[in-house]
Structures are given as structure tokens and as C-alpha cells.
Design a protein around this nucleic acid. Structure first.
Lengths: 138, 138
DNA sequence: CTTTTATCTGTAGCGGCTACAGATTGCATA
DNA sequence: TATGCAATCTGTAGCCGCTACAGATAAAAG
């Protein structure tokens, strides 16, 4: 029986591995519900908050935006089945693959161009050429 | 002889394919030198400005940050040879490859997990599992 | 000269935090 | 119980790289 009861924001921060300031930020933007407060006004979190916060962190680690996470959380709350969630994940996967493709184009261009450099003090520099000659396509 | 003389910001924007607001932004942050002004206060650009602006745009397209571009421009101005520039490009290339690796990790996790989904209204969802169970590594 | 278009400055917003300042609360020890 | 220190509070501002406005003025076209 792991009965961790109410806990402060610092403890939640350590358990969920999320910055304290970030936790308050998530509350402000409506990702994490406002917890009850102690008589003195300190936030007091339950295990449910912790689970939700871990969900948020993991989603961020997988590259979901705050907006997308809001949607994911709505799907979960709404008791939607696996299908909708899978669909959201696959959409996001496509985004990621698009970004990878962009970066690979950049990397290819840079690598190819840098390979043509002679280095040293050579005045001619193929990198400068592709950067400044506007009529040559990348 | 292509003697385009002084021109306004709109014309520069079209030639260099950079947004007008972005041009003024680059001037504010010190990437593009402040051009002379007409008696009425409008910016008046030369071909040098255009070349430099194209350089900036291309660098951004290759993923260099504004700071990195400032450094690149310093290298160029300083008459440094190909070697230094090549070095900067290779450093940047490593950054890009790091980002690609990050994104590929995300994509792999998402793809593998989504593949285990049964879809439909199944109550069990492997995606939700990896998102909320904090003791399972991604 | 009048109209239209171009440009001007300044400010604020985006996302996703992070970093402060200055006030207050909570808890442990003497 | 007093005290001292750590934890937390709110509010605001900054980061990057733009983008979008509003309201005023300049330039070009008719």
C-alpha cells in the first residue's frame, strides 16, 4: 500500500520530475487542475495530480504541444477508446517525421557543402557561396 | 550591368524573399546594418544589404540561430578563411544531427506503441500506459 | 492636387517555459 | 514558545524569432 497523501509542490516536483515553476505554469494554462490549498495558501496535491503531471511530462518528451496534450487529456477524460488516442498519436507521428525530413535536408546540404571546403585560409569558400548567392537553389 | 540602385524595404523584401517586418527585426537585433534614410525617413537599401539579407535568410533556412549567424557574419567580415567557417558549419551540423536523433527516438516510441493499439473502443491503451506510468522508461 | 500605396514607429502577442523580487507560511530545533 | 530557515506564494518580465496590428507620415501615380 503506497499511501502517499497530500503533498506540497516541491515534493510533487521531485516525484514527477517537473520544475516547480513549470507546474504552476501548467496550472495557469489549464493542463493541471488547481489543487486545494492549505489554510496558508500553499498548494496541496494528491496522487491523481501526480499521475496527470507525469502524463503531461511524458507527452512533452514525445514532442506533443501543450494544445495537443490538452486534447489528449480530453480524450482520456471523455472515456474515449484506444482508437481516438491512436489516431492523435499517428497524426503527431507524421508531424515528427516531417520535422526529421526538414532537418535531414539541412544536414545533407551542410555536410555536402562543408566537404567541398578546402579549409585553412582559402579565400574561396563553398559555404559562403551557397549562403549568399541567391540564384543557386539550396 | 545590373545596376539596381537604392531601393525601399518593400522591394528588398521581394528580392530577398524576406518579410518586411522580419527585415526591420533583423535590423533591431543587429544582423542587418541600419541603412541610410530618405529625407522623409524611409529606409534606402543597397545591393550590399540585399546580399547580406539573402545570406541571413539562407542561414536561417539551414537552421542557424540568429546568434550563430552573427558569428558567421563576423567571420566573413573579419576576412577569416574557409577553415573557421567550415568549423562553424560542422559544429552546427552536429547540433542538427542531435536533434534528428531526438526526433527519431520520439518517432520510434510513438510508432511502436501505436502499433500495439487495438484501436476501436478498447479500454486498454498502450499509449496511455506509456504516458502515465512513470516507472516504465520510454 | 488628390488619391492610393508604401513605409514609418511602437507595442503586444505567440509557445513553453525560466527567473527573479518581495512577501508570507510551514516546520524543526533550541 | 520563540526563532530561524526553508518552502511556497503572487506577479512580472525575459528568452527566441518572428508576426500582427494601429495610427501617423511619406512617396508615387493619376
Amino acid at each position: 500500500m503506497t499511501h502517499r497523501r497530500e503533498q506540497g509542490i516541491g515534493s510533487l516536483s521531485r516525484l514527477a520530475e517537473v520544475n516547480i515553476e513549470t507546474i504552476r505554469y501548467y496550472e495557469r494554462v489549464g493542463l493541471l487542475p488547481s489543487p486545494p490549498r492549505t489554510p496558508g495558501g500553499h498548494r496541496s496535491y494528491s496522487d491523481d495530480h501526480r499521475r496527470r503531471l507525469v502524463f503531461i511530462r511524458r507527452s512533452r518528451e514525445l514532442g506533443f504541444t501543450v494544445d495537443e496534450i490538452r486534447n489528449l487529456l480530453d480524450l482520456v477524460e471523455g472515456g474515449h477508446g484506444c482508437g481516438d488516442i491512436q489516431e492523435a498519436a499517428l497524426r503527431h507521428l507524421e508531424d515528427i517525421r516531417g520535422k526529421i525530413a526538414d532537418l535531414e535536408r539541412m544536414a545533407r546540404t551542410l555536410a555536402e557543402t562543408a566537404a567541398r571546403c578546402e579549409g585553412g585560409d582559402a579565400p574561396e569558400c563553398p559555404i559562403l557561396d551557397i549562403l549568399s548567392e541567391e540564384d543557386k537553389p539550396l
